[in-house]
Amino acid sequence: MQKYKQLEKQAVLLGRVRSEVWAKYGAVAGLNISDRAIRDAWMKEGRNFGVSANAWKETLRDCMGDIKAYREAAKEKVKQAIRKRTTCDNERKRLYTLLKKDEWTTDNFLHRQMRK
């Protein structure tokens, strides 16, 4: 029973880490930043999450992976919108390239679609 309570407490603390990562890096701010850069910055700040360093680092890495997967899934819907929007091959290629290189913030249409 004691072990279960410890695990429950750890889950709550790591949930706070996940929430913070999603809130700060789940949108445009997390576009070109790696989990290692965030980890290094947090370590430099001396952040204490109340759990072992391995636990919060793995949670950070996992969460950044989830954000990336979510962003990649969103790109599939944006590709559909691109196909509906234009029949010009050059314009399609330009938009697909911006999307692939994660430079979609430079184009208003792509930015709007990714925010959806």
Rank of each mutant, 00 (worst) to 15 (best):
M1F: 14
Q2T: 01
K3F: 09
Y4C: 01
K5S: 14
Q6N: 08
Q6Y: 08
E8H: 01
K9V: 13
K9L: 10
Q10A: 07
Q10N: 15
Q10C: 07
Q10K: 12
A11S: 13
V12Y: 05
L13K: 13
L14W: 04
L14V: 07
R16W: 10
V17F: 02
V17C: 01
R18S: 05
R18W: 14
R18F: 07
E20V: 01
V21R: 06
V21Q: 01
V21M: 02
A23C: 03
A23F: 09
A23L: 12
K24S: 11
Y25I: 05
Y25R: 06
G26I: 15
V28T: 05
G30N: 01
G30M: 07
I33C: 06
I33K: 15
S34D: 10
D35K: 10
D35G: 04
A37T: 11
I38H: 02
I38W: 00
D40A: 07
A41M: 15
A41V: 14
W42T: 11
W42C: 04
M43C: 14
K44W: 01
E45P: 03
R47E: 14
N48G: 11
N48T: 11
F49V: 00
G50N: 01
G50C: 15
V51E: 08
V51C: 01
V51L: 03
S52V: 13
S52R: 03
S52D: 03
A53G: 09
N54M: 11
N54E: 08
W56E: 05
E58F: 08
E58S: 09
L60M: 06
R61Q: 15
D62S: 07
D62V: 00
D62F: 07
C63F: 11
C63T: 12
M64R: 06
D66N: 10
D66L: 09
I67G: 04
I67Y: 13
K68D: 15
K68C: 09
K68G: 02
A69T: 09
A69D: 13
Y70E: 13
A73C: 13
A74V: 02
A74C: 04
A74R: 05
K75Y: 02
K75G: 06
K75A: 08
K75W: 04
K77D: 10
V78E: 09
Q80G: 03
Q80N: 15
A81M: 10
R83C: 03
R83Q: 15
K84P: 04
R85S: 15
R85K: 07
R85N: 12
R85Y: 00
T86G: 05
T87N: 13
D89A: 15
D89C: 05
D89S: 10
E91L: 07
E91P: 00
E91F: 12
R92F: 12
R92P: 00
R92Q: 10
K93A: 14
Y96T: 05
Y96F: 02
Y96L: 00
T97N: 10
T97F: 12
T97P: 08
L98H: 13
L99H: 04
K101V: 13
K101F: 01
D102F: 03
E103F: 14
E103R: 01
E103S: 14
E103M: 14
W104K: 03
W104Y: 02
W104F: 01
T105M: 13
T105D: 02
T106A: 02
D107M: 10
D107Y: 02
N108I: 07
N108P: 02
L110D: 05
H111K: 11
Q113V: 09
Q113A: 12
Q113I: 08
M114Q: 06
M114P: 09
K116L: 02
